[in-house]
């Protein structure tokens, strides 16, 4: 599977029309044919397809994804520099989605068929019907341009005194005990995270609602009620614990969706993550960088899917025993 992915990634860019060398040299003025040939050799672009692919895989296994043509730096170091920003945004967005989606789903299930439930259903559908990047623009217009309560773009303001160490700025701020920097980082995170989390929030809400409705009909819930437990204990302690299973198993898949949705949102917010890096690389035809970025996304996606598959059996013993 992983090999298939690397092959497609390689194939995609190998087929790309437009010569990266010419684009690269286009910025330095007129250049001789020998010069072009020299650079083609330097990047290995003069070799046959399969040789190039073999080299690509062999080097990738050693953690070498080549050198960015535009940045003139190893792709791996460019990725390493941007991955924390993307991961931080994705996890923060997932956190928001869960914090809003789970309670909303519970309320919708408990107050089933009420006005609240119906409103929730429509809002959830609305959440998956919005382009995330457009929501981002609207949030910028409302909260950054007009109300001026959140910054327009970026991850950190100047002059906070925060020294990036791990790349995860929230963590850095905590480690360095800089409260003002922490607040600043959070303020930068709110709008992009909100924009990306809308879809997952809606999915989580629908999932919690339908799964909780199912568990509320189970016999052990009737038993709990018959014992005379308070209704909120029945729901929170008994039904929800099982009702959350599908939400947890869907978490990995949702993270994958968030991650790729972030590509465009990062561009909107000037967020220095992998998504923006790859989009810029595509616009400048920086092959190695695009390859590395797409490979990062695909491999993360595969890993998350695998995690989702494994978590079914891990969290629900019935499935594990059913398979035996």
């Amino acid at each position: 599977m992983v090999l298939g992915v690397t092959f497609v990634v390689f194939l995609l860019l190998w087929l790309t029309p437009g010569d990266p060398v010419e684009i690269f040299l286009g910025q330095t003025g007129p250049i001789t044919a020998e010069e072009i040939a020299r650079i083609r050799r330097e990047f290995g672009l003069d070799q046959p397809f399969l040789v190039q692919y073999g080299r690509f895989v062999a080097r990738a296994l050693r953690g070498d994804l080549g050198t960015s043509i535009i940045h003139r730096r190893p792709v791996v170091s460019l990725l390493a520099q941007t991955i924390p920003a993307t991961v931080e945004l994705t996890l923060f967005a997932a956190l928001i989605a869960l914090l809003v989606g789970v309670p909303a789903g519970v309320i919708a299930a408990v107050r089933r068929r009420s006005l609240l439930d119906m409103a929730g259903t429509v809002i959830a559908l609305a959440g998956v019907s919005l382009p995330g990047f457009w929501l981002g623009l609207i949030l910028v217009i409302a909260f950054a341009v007009n109300l001026k309560v959140f910054p327009v773009a970026g991850r950190l303001s100047f002059g906070t005194g925060l020294v990036p160490q791990t790349g995860f700025l929230l963590l850095d701020a905590l480690l360095q005990r800089k409260l003002s920097a922490l607040v600043d980082v959070l303020r930068h995170l709110v709008l992009p995270a909100w924009a990306t989390s809308a879809g997952m929030m809606a999915m989580t809400m629908r999932l919690v609602r339908s799964s909780l409705l199912e568990t509320l009909n189970q016999e052990y819930v009737h038993t709990a009620r018959a014992k005379g437990l308070a209704e909120h204990r029945v729901i929170l302690a008994h039904a929800l614990r099982n009702g959350l299973l599908p939400v947890i198993t869907a978490l990995a898949l949702n993270l994958g969706a968030l991650l790729s949705g972030n590509m465009v949102v990062e561009t909107v917010f000037g967020w220095p993550g992998v998504g923006r890096l790859v989009v810029q690389a595509i616009q400048t035809r920086d092959y190695p960088l695009v390859q590395g970025g797409v490979l990062f996304y695909a491999l993360t996606f595969v890993a998350l899917n695998l995690l989702a598959d494994l978590s079914y059996g891990f969290l629900d013993p019935r499935i594990r025993h059913g398979r035996e």
């Binding site: 298939g4 992915v5 790729s260 996304y297 695909a298 996606f301 899917n305």
Partner: peptide, 8 residues
């Protein structure tokens, strides 16, 4: 094909 995120 499914191994790739759609948008990517």
């Amino acid at each position: 094909l499914l191994a790739f995120p759609y948008l990517v």
